[in-house]
Design a protein around this nucleic acid. Structure first.
Lengths: 156, 156
DNA sequence: TCTCTTATTGAAAATGATTCCCATTATCAA
DNA sequence: TTGATAATGGGAATCATTTTCAATAAGAGA
C-alpha cells in the first residue's frame, strides 16, 4: 500500500465540480456526517453534528446542501410522518440497501432487507421503462410501509 | 331497482362506528369530497371544497379527519415534496390503482399504471411477510419515484 | 501566486403547514 | 329523551423550512 491517496480521496469534489458546483468546507462536513452514520438523520441532527467541528456553519447551509445532494441523487430524503424530513446516504443499489416500516404512532422506523433483491430488480426495470416513457430523469425513489408496530397495536 | 337505498348508503358509517368513532357531518362531507375527485387534494383544497357546502366546518377538523382516515387505512397520504401533504381515496388494490412520478422542480405529478400488476403482486407478498415477521399492522404504503420531468430537464 | 467573477454562506426574519387549547356542541347507546 | 363523551372550531402556538441580502470564499485564468 505505497503511494496511497487515502481511502477517502473519493470522487465527491469531482462530482460537484462536474455539475458546476464548488466543494466547500460546510459541504464536506455535511457529507462526512452522513457517511459516518447508519442512522436516518434530520437536518437539525446534521446541523448539530457539523456544529461540533465547525461551529460557524449555519442551519440554512445544511438545508441548502441537503437539497442539493437530494437533487443530485446522492442522498435519500425520507418522510416518516414526523413533520420533518430525514436523510440517508445512497450506498448504491447493492448491499446495505433497505426500505422502511414506519409506525405512524410512535414514529419508530424498522429497516428491512427482505425482498430487497426482488425490489431492486423491480425498481431497476420500472425506472428504466418509466424514465423512457415519460422522459423523466429519475434520481430517487421511495418504497415504504406505514402502520402500527407491535407495541402501539396493543396500546391502541 | 325497487327498494333501493341509494348508491351511497355505503358502509362508511358502519366502518366508523365499528372502530368506536362517530359519523358526523364534517366527516361525511370530507369523505364525499375525496370520493368525487381523482385529484390529489391537500388539506386546504378539501377545506375549501367542504366549505362551499358547509361553511361552518373548520380547517382543524379537516386535518383531524384526514389523520383519522389515514390511520384507518382508508385514504393515502402523499408527500410530493411541496411542503404539504396530499390525500387520495384508497380504491382498493384493483383498478384505478396507480403510483407516482414526482418532478422535484416543478412539483408536477404523473400517475402511472405500468407495472401495477407486478407491483401489487409484490406489495401483497411483502405486506404479508413483513407484517408477520415484524408483528406490524400495515395499513398504507408508498411507492414513488422522484426526478426531473422533461420540461425541467431542459431548463436545468 | 494573485485577481476577479460569482457561487456560497450565515444571521435574522418570514413563511406556512400543521397542531394545540378549550369552551361549546352533537352523536348515539340506553 | 337523556347523559356520557366524542367531536368541533376559532384562534393562538409550534416549528420545520425558506427567503433575504450583505459579506465571504472557491477556483479558473492570468
Amino acid at each position: 500500500m505505497v503511494g496511497r491517496r487515502g481511502p477517502m480521496s473519493s470522487g465527491w469534489p469531482g462530482k460537484f465540480r462536474g455539475c458546476g458546483y464548488r466543494m466547500t468546507v460546510p459541504r464536506q462536513a455535511i457529507i462526512e456526517v452522513l457517511q459516518k452514520t447508519k442512522k436516518h438523520l434530520s437536518a437539525e441532527d446534521i446541523y448539530m453534528e457539523v456544529h461540533k467541528i465547525f461551529p460557524q456553519v449555519g442551519l440554512t447551509t445544511v438545508y441548502r446542501t441537503l437539497e442539493l445532494l437530494t437533487d443530485m441523487g446522492m442522498i435519500y430524503k425520507f418522510d416518516f410522518r414526523e413533520g420533518r424530513a430525514r436523510y440517508e446516504m445512497v450506498e448504491g443499489l447493492k448491499k446495505e440497501h433497505h426500505h422502511h416500516l414506519v409506525c405512524t404512532k410512535c414514529k419508530r422506523v424498522i429497516n428491512y432487507t427482505e425482498f430487497i433483491d426482488e425490489e431492486i430488480d423491480f425498481l431497476k426495470r420500472a425506472e428504466k421503462e418509466l424514465s423512457k416513457k415519460y422522459n423523466f430523469e429519475i434520481n430517487d425513489h421511495i418504497i415504504q410501509f406505514y402502520g402500527l408496530c407491535d407495541k402501539c397495536r396493543v396500546s391502541k
